[in-house]
């Protein structure tokens, strides 16, 4: 799709995607607790979830800069 003047890739999509993913991950604990009766301690869950999310963000960022160098 190169050459399409309308196609503008921005980091806005990454930010929004990240926040939506964060909310989904956050709700996952509620789903585990309410639907499956699995009580994961918030003190454990939230730091781990946050670490995973930040890891994903860093990885995504690294991949994107590699991609743009190649492209």
């Amino acid at each position: 799709m190169t050459g399409n003047p309308l196609r503008i890739e921005t980091s806005g999509g990454v930010l929004v995607g990240f926040v939506v993913l964060a909310v989904v991950v956050f709700e996952l604990r509620t789903v585990l607790g309410m639907l499956f009766g699995i009580d994961v301690s918030g003190v454990v869950y939230f730091p781990v979830a946050l670490a995973v999310l930040v890891g994903l963000l860093v990885a995504e960022n690294a991949l994107r800069s590699v991609g743009s160098k190649e492209g």
Binding site: N4, L6, E9, T10, G12, G13, G17
Partner: peptide, 19 residues
């Protein structure tokens, strides 16, 4: 799709998320 988005869900990436 007019902006060139493709795929079953991939079109979501072709939207103006910075706006």
């Amino acid at each position: 799709r007019q902006r060139g988005g493709t795929g079953l869900f991939g079109w979501l990436r072709a939207l103006p998320w910075r706006d």
